[in-house]
Amino acid sequence: MKKLAYIGGVVALAMTVFGACDTIGEDERKQEYTGSISSERKVLLEDYTGVRCVNCPSAAAEIERLQEFYGDALVVVGVYPQRPTGLTTPWNATRDQDLRTDVAQTWADAFSIEQFPNGTVNRQEVIAYTEWGGAIAEVISDGINYVDLSVSASLPTDTSVSVSVSGSFVEDYEADGTIHLITMILEDSIVVPQQVPGRIDPGYVHNHVLRTVLGSAWGDQVASEAPTRGTTFSANYTGTLDPVWRRNKLSVVVAVVNNSSREVIQVAQVHLDAGE
């Protein structure tokens, strides 16, 4: 009798544990998203990827959907590290087929990214591509805009780029950490073979590929810790263009980052026209 009581007690306990279980009915699964889709604060999405990574094209397809949906509010950078070599080694050995950069590896090491595809939204958490949409939505609907940022860029000569940045804090930013600017040069529409499910696609188009960073990999300081509302900053950068890059496909991305938490608090992108 005592034994039955024990067993009965356990079953009751088990029901309680299993009762702690949410079942979502068929018509309750999705609801239309009513949050804001535009904001003063832009979001930086960095996609860590490699030409031998078979799951990476799925992440690229998700990026296309997100870009079409969010438009200017979203800035995307494709980061191609050098390791792991099994996922990143170019299919052809010529220099113009190599999308990898040293700065990409520096960032991948700092975020402990060894598996692809993986990414960061405003450099907060390393998350899989299925989570990017949700993370971007949270910043755009709830994030506070701290910085008004203005970027202009031009190609003064055939082999150089010049970038001019100015910004001002429209809110007090109270976190620890100095404020840095990271200036990136991206190139669009690069055709380089990519592993896709079942085969290697020789005509795969890579967009928003990170080509270089002007200055240090973690940026240069433009403001001290906890800048108050009204603080302004400005910076000018110049850089040399690699002849392999096509000048009419380039764009400049400038990110305002907290150098301690690495959080991206504002980002802006301008496309370069070869005619300028």
């Binding site: 702690a20 949410d22 999705k30 609801q31 939505a137």
Partner: peptide, 12 residues
């Protein structure tokens, strides 16, 4: 069209 998924917080 964007949808938000209603995710179960307790999975048994």
């Amino acid at each position: 069209t964007p949808y938000q998924l209603n995710l179960p917080e307790n999975v048994g």
